[in-house]
Nucleic acid binder design. Structure first.
Length: 121
DNA sequence: GGATTGACGGGAG
DNA sequence: ACTCCCGCCAATC
């Protein structure tokens, strides 16, 4: 069954706004992946754009950047372990648990916008 | 303005 | 499990 965007989702041509909106709507205690956000933003093959946008947006906007993990359920800060630890700590404080490898169970913690923000047609 | 570089992901071998 | 490889978008040189 096809999905249609939530009425409040910004226009398709404004990818940055879409990404911001989506990230801003991830509930506390849930996580989303770069690929997932790219998919719902209408650019399924551009997860890198999500990371790029998020990096910039984190500085000025108050987005919950820590709720965005990679497809493995892990923090994507290979070159900055301290930042990765901060991200995990923020999520743990919201009730998300991580295993010894620093990965969370996406089957449990992943946000499901199909239920929360998307409508069937 | 071309080239390079990422907080990425999926597929192929 | 691991190594390429390609796609896509924004920022930076």
């Amino acid at each position: 069954m096809p999905l249609t965007p939530h009425p409040e989702l910004p226009a398709l041509d404004d990818l940055s706004a879409r990404i911001d909106w989506l990230v801003g709507h991830i509930p506390s205690g849930r996580v989303a992946t770069y690929g997932q956000l790219a998919f719902y933003a209408g650019r399924a093959r551009a997860p890198r754009a999500v990371g790029n946008r998020l990096k910039r947006a984190t500085a000025d906007d108050g987005l919950p950047w820590w709720r965005v993990l990679n497809a493995q359920g892990a923090s994507s800060f290979a070159g900055d372990p301290a930042q990765a630890a901060r991200q995990r700590a923020l999520l743990v404080a919201e009730g998300v648990s991580f295993d010894a490898d620093g990965r969370c169970d996406l089957d449990v913690a992943q946000w499901d916008p199909e239920v929360t923000f998307w409508q069937e047609t």
